[in-house]
Simulated scan of single mutants.
Amino acid sequence: MPVAFTLNGAPVRVEAPEGMTLLHALRGPLGLSGPRFGCGAEACGCCYVTIDGEPRPSCALPAEAVAGRSVGTVEGLGTPEAPHPVQAAFLEEQAGQCGYCLSGILVSAAALLERNPDPDEAAVRAALEPHLCRCGAQNRMVRAVLRAARAA
């Protein structure tokens, strides 16, 4: 079944057989590599994207659920030449370690700053809570999001 939606600001149309998740549509036919498969149960945060500006897991969400909606991934945040403030702050704080969880965390952090340009530490921790980072870089990530907020 064809599913049409906006992806990182551009209209797309993808053939999504019944049962195909949004994550598999993004990584398969749409060729993105940012959102990752972690647990498949919406519990780790590796697959997070924004849907109409709200961070959501994509690993169990049927692709047809985003028809007519706007989806954002880490690929839509910035470029190497002009990184999003969150991306720049993560580099400055050395907040990424292995990087597996980072795309979901960056998307959620950018969405937080869009909703709340001046969050306190508790708000940042709450926004990043759904994301599992096994490397133990959470404190650096919180500092990076607060740095990005100050830079904006």
Score class of each variant (00 low, 15 high):
Arg115Cys: 11
Ala126Asn: 09
Pro29Met: 11
Ser103His: 08
Met20Ala: 13
Thr50Ile: 13
Gln97Ile: 02
Glu15Gly: 06
Ala41His: 06
Arg56Ile: 01
Arg115Asn: 14
Cys46Phe: 14
Ala109Leu: 12
Gly19Ala: 11
Glu92Asp: 13
Glu92Trp: 03
Glu81Tyr: 05
Leu102Trp: 05
Arg134Gly: 12
Arg27Leu: 02
Ala10Arg: 10
Leu128Trp: 02
Pro35Met: 02
Glu129Asn: 10
Gly53Lys: 00
Ala25Phe: 04
Pro80Thr: 06
Glu15Ser: 14
Pro80Trp: 01
Ser33Asn: 08
Cys46Asn: 09
Pro57Ala: 01
Asn116Val: 13
Arg125Asn: 14
Gly38Ile: 03
Ala127Arg: 01
Gly76Gln: 00
Arg134Met: 08
Cys46Val: 10
Val12Arg: 07
Arg134Thr: 10
Pro130Ser: 10
Ala4Phe: 02
His131Met: 09
Cys59Lys: 05
Gln87Val: 11
Ala25Asn: 05
Cys59Ile: 03
Val71Pro: 03
Gly99Cys: 10
Leu77Phe: 05
Ala41Val: 11
Ala109Gln: 11
Ala110Trp: 04
Gly38His: 05
Gly19Asp: 07
Glu42Tyr: 03
Thr79Cys: 08
Ser103Gly: 14
Ala63Met: 01
Arg125Glu: 15
Gly28Asn: 12
Arg115Ala: 15
Ala123Leu: 13
Val49Pro: 10
Ala4Ser: 15
